[in-house]
């Protein structure tokens, strides 16, 4: 036996008066060996406890349907996320491919970690109003706090259920959300000339434009081939 076995020392502290307890309390359940029991009783209770635990596990072999297993990624086609699930951010485009973002930059100002960068055309030639140029979203710094969706006065943003966003190059996680650079759907409708309205919608690639880190050339890193993003 070791010569010195240190004994835990009770901290020297006068007994504390805890006063009247406001809570109505439940006393703890005694353990098997914590009670004064005979050896036979202890052995029986211990045996019973262990066997009941084993039987619980075994009983699930009898009813395997109650065991939950998510068959992901096999169920990819049928998998449905909840309506409110916060996945990839997206700018809502209507059937004609027009968005409703006026580039008011409220979401950019209230984003807690500057994950949204908006550049705008200060005065559109046709409408005479400011128009969205690029809506850049940095998925790599986004915390999915949902504040941009909540504060948007025109309800043009939404969080989609798309959660599979792994890429091999993190520069791919910074991209444009808008499909064209130009005025909103409402402003385009006001233009009487359809041809003029079409002309205002300059098509936008996901990785187009001077987006920070976005596939652009960096020190020692060649330019990324943006024509072929990873998802295929």
């Amino acid at each position: 036996m070791a010569t010195t076995t240190p004994v835990p020392t009770e901290t020297e502290c006068p007994p504390i008066d805890f006063g009247e307890l406001k809570s109505n309390c439940v006393a703890p359940r005694p353990s098997i060996m914590g009670q004064k029991r005979g050896l036979r009783s202890i052995l029986w209770l211990s045996f019973k406890g262990i066997v009941r635990g084993l039987l619980t596990t075994l009983s699930y072999f009898r009813r395997p349907s109650t065991v939950v297993t998510q068959q992901y990624p096999e169920n990819r086609d049928t998998l449905e996320m909840f309506e409110r699930y916060r996945g990839r951010l997206s700018l809502i485009h209507n059937e004609e491919g027009e968005h409703g973002c006026t580039a008011c930059q409220i979401c950019e100002r209230l984003c807690p970690n500057a994950s949204i960068i908006i550049t705008k055309d200060k005065k559109n030639e046709a409408t005479g109003k400011p128009a969205l140029d690029q809506f850049i979203w940095r998925q790599d710094t986004c915390t999915f706090c949902n504040i941009c969706v909540l504060v948007c006065p025109f309800d043009t943003l939404e969080m989609t259920g798309d959660f599979e966003s792994s890429v091999f190059d993190r520069r791919l996680l910074v991209f444009n959300l808008n499909e064209y650079a130009g005025p909103t759907a409402g402003q385009l409708d006001k233009l009487e000339d359809d041809e003029l309205a079409k002309a205002q919608m300059k098509p936008m690639n996901k990785y187009q434009g001077p987006v920070p880190m976005c596939g652009g050339e960096m020190d020692g890193i060649p330019k990324l081939d943006v024509e072929k993003p990873t998802d295929a």
């Binding site: 359940r29 098997i32 060996m33 209770l45 211990s46 019973k48 406890g49 262990i50 009941r52 635990g53 039987l55 619980t56 596990t57």
Partner: peptide, 9 residues
């Protein structure tokens, strides 16, 4: 309780 609480170990 069956699995853990009543287990003597």
């Amino acid at each position: 309780d069956d699995l853990l609480t009543n287990n003597v170990i």
